[in-house]
Design a binder for these strands. Structure first.
Length: 129
RNA sequence: GCGGAGGAUUGGAUGGCCGAGGCAGGGGUUUUCCCCUGUCUAGGAAAGUCCGGACUCCAUCAAGGCAUGAUGCUGGGUAACGCCCAGGCAGGGCAACCUGACGGACAGCGCCACAGAGAACAGACCGCCUUCUAUAGGAAGGUAAGGGUGAAACGGUGGAGUAAGAGCCCACCGCGGCGAUGGCAACAUCGCUGGCAUGGCAAGCCCCAUCAGGAGCAAUGCCAAAUAGGGGCCGCGUGUGGGGAACCACAGGAUCGUCUUGAUCCGAGCAGGUCCGGGUUGGCAGCUAGAGGGUGUUUGGUAACAAACGCCUUAGAUGAAUGGUCAUCGAAUUGGGUUCGCCCAAGGAACAAAAUCCGGCUUAUAGAUCCUCCGCGUAU
RNA sequence: UGGGGUGUAGCCAAGUGGUAAGGCAACGCUUUUUGGUAGCGUGCACCGUAGGUUCGAAUCCUACCACCCCAG
């Protein structure tokens, strides 16, 4: 994403506190870097946060659900719920220029009450910042 | 009514709010990108990856042999199959029905531990019988009915026969051969005949018949960036022998399991010319309408299936969309009550998610519905 | 997604139809004042699971399960 696009984004739709739209991380190297940064565990998920240290203010988000979470159905369901809480809450809570990785947990991520899942996420972010 | 057998269908419902991906159209001045509208968006197994194909690439190919692998009763269906249908045979079940790697052991080789006398061209431990010596736990011969061992002991049962016995002989059964009848065939039935000569294992090697080139969509083709200094082709040239040379002969290598024959090509080295590209990163194509699927009718066929016509339907992602959440209704199940009709409360839906596509197989699966059939009980 | 491989005691492993070797570790005993070393001994396996072939299966066949490796 270029700097021209950033100006365009902020000028049009989003509120001032929320910079760019969320971009999704796809490279393995980004996930490896995030795994070495700070992390916070809660009953239903784990959040990793890394300050990229470059000038780009964009927030990037990634999701991890390994085979430990369960079979393909369980992994997909856990990943969708993580995506949903990130879509709802991250624009308001995230810090610019950081990468976030949400990691699903066996059983808990797929079955926990939705509001409780959001609360877990907000609490974890609060501890990290 | 109780218990069972076979087959088919289905695989939670409705609504509100908020989203994701593909395609089409429109808009933001163009591209990346963003917005709006419309439309489509998981399975019966999408799974395991066990078979069969389509498709793509590799190989300069042709013929034959060998090897390797797979299949294995018969006939049919299919693009093909290890799948399906029908039939035969064998086994199980009172039955409906189910199950079966179900060719060959006179082509050859191998194995059959322990036990037992003997484990495969039979043989003789105990026993039985005869003779001899002369009374012993003796010797020679006959015998294979009986005993014991073993998973298995060289046809079974009965009779005749004998010194004792034996398919030595006879009857029935089993086995082998030949013929007749029925059947496309597997095979069945009947008749004649042989003489017991032929133990088991082929999911041991093998023989017979049939089939198979190899790799796989992360195949493969293309574009862009970046990097390293490799390879191919052309040209000059060509190992050994003969020759002045052209050339001939021989030897070597390559042609994707291997050998033979044929055919074709190659060669040590180099001042050169020209082209390609390994590893890495990203993008596009392949990419979804196909031996498609479903359904209805007609025709052929016992059936699988085939043909014709009509209608309906037809996901294309790539850190990977097909959803999240809330409300109402709700099946199983559990507890309580019951006038056996049901009522109240709790509870809140199995397995499992496309990754090039298709035909099968196998495995997982809460429950619900329907059809046909069998046995037992009761009534008529 | 496709291709290939491996499962034997707590660990490493041999065994290719006939009673499942060996080493490390564990436990016990001896030697030593004690520990270590050394020596002697003991136990530990339904051979990944389930069927089948065979008189007999870790071994042969079939189906499942788990784990590992490879690729543009």
């Amino acid at each position: 994403m270029t700097s021209d696009d950033e100006k365009f984004e902020t000028a049009t739709a989003q509120p001032a506190a929320v910079f760019a739209r969320l971009t999704v991380m796809k490279k393995r190297s980004d996930f490896v870097a995030a795994s070495k940064a700070r992390y916070q565990t809660s009953p239903s998920l784990t959040v990793q946060m890394r300050d990229r240290g470059d000038d780009d203010p964009a927030v990037r988000i990634g999701f991890t659900c390994s085979k430990k979470v369960g079979n393909a159905v369980a992994r997909n369901r856990a990943k969708r719920r993580l995506r949903e809480i990130a879509r709802l809450d991250l624009p308001a809570l995230a810090k610019a220029g950081h990468d976030y990785v949400l990691i699903g947990k066996k059983e808990a991520t797929a079955t926990r009450d939705f509001e409780a899942l959001r609360a877990d996420f907000a609490k974890a972010l609060g501890k990290l910042s």
